[in-house]
Design a protein around this nucleic acid. Structure first.
Lengths: 188, 188
DNA sequence: GTCTATAACAGGATAGAC
DNA sequence: GTCTATCCTGTTATAGAC
């Protein structure tokens, strides 16, 4: 509790960080609408009005809380891509960035989150399409992306028993041929 | 406008129907939280308090609006199942029951919708698992279900360009091998 | 009495005063 | 940084119409 001794700028930085952490957790857990400024403030141990003071609006707080690092692009072939997708899936809920969960949680009900999701998924589709040969690369890339989204939603957000109780290697094993089938008409 | 001449019971039935239709549309469009009782009442051309009088709570209105007929069970083999899933997907947004869309729209942010979704998806998984051979039938069935959910979310709810601009037969053609790969390790 | 409309309350986001 | 006032929710209580 030596925060009183810190310079103003540093204290402000830490407070903002605490607020953003609390916001990420709550947004990821309950979505945009059910998350109240008051609850965020309580979780961060600050005055509710301070949150408004710092971020201006709940909208803007959300925007900064879910800001997610863009996917690092890399030229891979189709099989490597499948492996990478499967790898990303096997992350546990605690490890997967809360900001992504927060965005996914609200993407069906909050316009801003929907826009972010479309943008992020679009980038993912672009990246996949670049590594897939053929006329219909974009369609295949989009379907691969939606397959991963569906499985992630069922696993992380809906927490279906059928997916939660199964070791990730098992999921990966069953899912791999299905994703491979989407990379192209023939396994050259 | 001869409604005045109808018996009370009939008038009430129609008014309830109008309210439920309006609620379904709004819930499907904006989700549970962003749908206000007042907006539903306005769309149905009734007084807001009437909605409460009839349904008791927004929760109960939602419950009745999204009540969806259970999937008719049928013993099919794996390939027929894939065809059926693909067929269900090709329904356009206007044809797919609004009640299902309403439930899907809110399943990530509204606890009641989440419970309904788990139940409905669970039934779908059971049905699929019965038609799939092997130890891991339930896992495969769950993944098939989530694949369909992901594609549906991308298509109907997120309305991704990559899926909206493509004819359904095209989607079906690309998706079919991927679903087949989930029905079992070998195509007997 | 049953249906409909009005008013009042509690909790939320937000703007402005202090 | 904090407090207060305003507006919009869901919900309940109350009054009026048939």
């Amino acid at each position: 509790m030596s925060e009183r001794l810190l310079p103003r700028a540093e204290r402000r930085r830490r407070t903002e960080g605490r607020i953003l952490d609390a916001a990420r957790t709550l947004f990821a857990d309950m979505g945009f609408e059910r998350t109240t400024i008051r609850a965020v403030a309580r979780a961060a141990a600050v005055d509710p009005a301070l949150v408004m003071q710092y971020f201006g609006s709940k909208q803007e707080l959300f925007r900064q809380a879910v800001r997610v690092a863009p996917v690092p692009d890399a030229g891979l072939d189709a099989d490597e891509l499948v492996d990478q997708l499967i790898g990303a899936l096997s992350m546990k809920i605690g490890e997967l960035p809360q900001s992504s969960l927060a965005m996914m949680r609200s993407m069906l009900t909050h316009p801003e989150a929907a826009a972010s999701a479309r943008e992020l998924l679009g980038k993912q589709i672009d990246r996949l399409a670049d590594s897939i040969p053929g006329e219909d690369a974009r369609l295949r890339a989009a379907l691969m992306t939606m397959v991963m989204l569906g499985v992630t939603v069922g696993h992380q957000l809906l927490e279906l028993d059928e997916l939660r109780d199964v070791p990730q290697e098992e999921i990966a094993r069953v899912l791999r041929p299905s994703l491979r089938a989407l990379t192209g008409p023939t396994v050259s």
